[in-house]
Design a binder for these strands. Sequence first.
RNA 1: UGUCUUAUGGUGUAAUGGUAGCACAACAGUCUCUGAAUCUGUUUGUCUAGGUUCGAGUCCUAGUAAGACAACCA
Length: 560
Amino acid sequence: MSTPVTEPANERTLNFIEEIVEADLASGKHKSIITRFPPEPNGYLHIGHAKSICLNFGLAKKYGGKTNLRFDDTNPVKEDTEYVDSIKEDVQWLGFNWANEFYASDYFQQLYDWAMEMIKKGLAYVDDQTQEEIRLTRGTVMNPGKESPYRNRSVEENVDLFTRMKNGEFKDGDKVLRAKIDMGHTNMLMRDPILYRIIHTDHHRTGSTWCIYPMYDYAHGQCDSIENITHSICTLEFDVHRPLYDWFIEKLEIFPSHQYEFARLNLTYTVMSKRKLLELVKNNYVSAWDDPRMPTICGLRRRGYTPESIRLFAEKVGVAKRNNVIDLSLLEWCVREDLNKRANRYMAVLNPVKVVITNYPEDKVEMMDAVNNPEDESAGKRQLPFSREIYIEHDDFMENPPKKYFRLSPGNEVRLKYAYIIKCEEVIKDEPGNIKELRCTYDAETRSGGSSSRSVKGTIHWVSAAQAVPAEVRLFDRLFTEAHMDDIPEDKDYKDYLNTESLQLTKAYLEPSLKELKAGTNVQFERLGYFVADKDSKPEQLVFNRTVTLKDTWAKIASK
RNA sequence: UGUCUUAUGGUGUAAUGGUAGCACAACAGUCUCUGAAUCUGUUUGUCUAGGUUCGAGUCCUAGUAAGACAACCA
């Protein structure tokens, strides 16, 4: 269903992770590579995850390796099957196939056995302190922590206690298993990190089998190791976790997976925090996870973004370790770039003004040839009805035009795309002075495709009034009105900056051939932008979402 | 005030001791029956101060700035 994206012609430069991989392959450190995409199933994937997906899967694809999809489901309180399903759907939609579908919970028994091994090696202990006590005795980034009074329990006692933890003899919070490292370590994560906590909550996959659950740090590296992940790629904020990641692997003497960090994606006008996105959904600030304003993969999909455009975007933003904020215009460029080659052109009028062509016969209807896609000849042609009364875009007429206005104005001529050149002879207004109708004449010699050599500066789109199909469109804009979350003042609620108006439906008139368009089909409304037929669209009520506008240089000229 | 990470045009990203390049944005021009796209061109950059070197964006030292870390989240 998806054609290959416009891959960059020459790929001379490698990102730093590709360089590492090439070096590892060249030195024989690894014969082939295995990567993994490890989402926690506690929310929907967004454009930031797309970058990670493209990196992990793209890397394996490029170097002939494979990629696992692994759900990091170590916290039953936050996770749900709903999210598992959506994540799988989104990864596939983006165009990637995983070698294996794994779950951290698949490894609970192995992780437990390893924990026992750690205890027996004297590297882990059961701590009875309360959460509060543990927090207080951890110290601060500036000051070392204090050792737990339970730190030096005997191996036998620890084995007994941990076994009983597993058997459900204790309540949530009564005890935890901790690694015995160094309470004075400059890295807070090395100050006897918690390995297991007691949670008497059913897990979406393991049910009530377990009441102790491993923490991220104890689980992640080992899961990578079990799967022989050669390059474990995560975002920058995990770099302080790497010493711990390595510590477990070293102490357990298991496959040495290695973690590499890259900068996560930030986009202007966009919120990328899963927590905040969840809040937007739960509080109904947006209609759902796939609200077309959402930066989620499913939101972008409903908005008409293509997998190719998102992959192209991931390619363009690059991979580095520097914190970044990408301009939304780059994403929009990627969408236009892709859609420009594949979306058929149609005519639609969003804000109509009626035009009566006074010298055109009353009952005549001509069928005009229209090219579906000038970028793609195989897209073919269609026929458009033309008649005496048409609608044109309100913006395409100005009573008192500025100097460089090329479109319709009194006494001026303009080309109706695929039809005739018309001249505005008269403006008819209602009582308050609003333009009601334009009376024009047409030049019968100038029919599109004919022999006339006359040319005018402006070309506008139109639909025949009698045959026009009414529809509704959503003219989405960006999710936030400010350039970035960071630009929203501290004392303001970010929800006040949400674009809510753009969700509203606007009436439109479409050319008749759009009547049967299937939901999810990308089209370009001539001169208006790229649109997509929404999933709610029905033959009796057509609904379109605007994917992205065409670059509107006229608006810039006009605003000068 | 600790540890770690980072610092190249407006925004991203290359240059691995040897001509600072590419993309987006911006601007100008060219085409065009889409003021789009295409095509051409222009503007704008190595955080600071020292040092090593024939030569430093790159290596060293110091400073500055930004980010991360003190959940029984991931």
